[in-house]
Amino acid sequence: MTTALSARVARFPFPFATDSYRYLTNVEPARTPVTTAAGGWGAGVLDVDDDYAVELAERAAVLAADPTRCQELPHMRVASWDALTTLLPELAAACPGETSLERDGDRWTWRNDLLGTARTFTVGDDDSLPEGPLAFLGSQIQDDVVLLDQREGALWADAGLVTFAADWSMGFDVGMRFLEVHGPVPRVHEAGVVQRAERFLMRLQPGEEYRRTNWTMTVDRRLDTSTETYAEWGRDRRLVVGDPALPDRLHLRVEVQHLIRLGVSNAICFLVRTHLLSLRELATVPEWRQRFGAVLAELPDDMADYKGLTRFRAAAVDWLTAG
């Protein structure tokens, strides 16, 4: 347990460089290694860790219970194939011992010993992958995937497999413009952040890859905090406050988001990889404990409210700053 815990801390993408947080279009080139107080992260696009099999089993369970988490408008099939054929080689490179990919033209054979998967399919042939390329991709990588189409001078969230949403619904948002998806987020519009982000993304050239981080907080190691299941997890935001186990239950949730211009389809592949670290785990790095306590205390009320932190923020700050 100690080893697993420290491995999780060591590769955690702690996102705060200063004692306050505001929305920024904080993008940087992908594959840039970052050194943190506890270790580091970010050398690759995909980050396969000790939770790999557990998280993919959880995704399968969420999808089985609610197939609307996987959305693909009909014109996005090429983009889904493109995402799959871009990211399987990436996964093969990240796990050379446990996975392998053999290509014979469009005939691909994929083996993944981490999950016991072995599949042969023909790129572009829908019948060869009955669940569809997007669903198959989602069964192999921990990241949630959103595919953005580009047309009419805008980006459109026209496909996605999102089982680990931080308080939003892919099923409701599918087909929206990028700006509309972000409609409810406070402050970002006044600051022009979303507009700038969209223009930046629309200018990405084939194969270009960038990344950014985002964060919120979650009670327990619950990856599925989608709007759909709000009725199941909403109360925990209140219940955790009086719980002596608060530092173990309350987690800093960090999303490492990759933005990749897919070459064949011209779609933007938006990957969201969710990392959870409990306050107690976080506090094993004194610098992080101090920094996160300061960020949380300073965060403006509207941003705390949008992120769903209002109920437990004071209790979290108290615990973090008492250390």
């Binding site: 619904s169 409701f172 948002d173 599918v174 087909g175 929206m176 509309e180 409609g183 409810p184 709007t227 709000y230 009725a231 909403g234 109360r235 935001r237 209140r238 219940l239 109920r311």
Partner: peptide, 22 residues
């Protein structure tokens, strides 16, 4: 009733108003 509208559904998003009540 949330200030969020789907163009494909032509509908507003609603979410459970009292999900955080104990």
């Amino acid at each position: 009733v949330y200030a969020h509208v789907s163009r494909r559904a032509g509908a507003y998003l609603g979410f459970m108003a009292d999900a955080e009540e104990v």
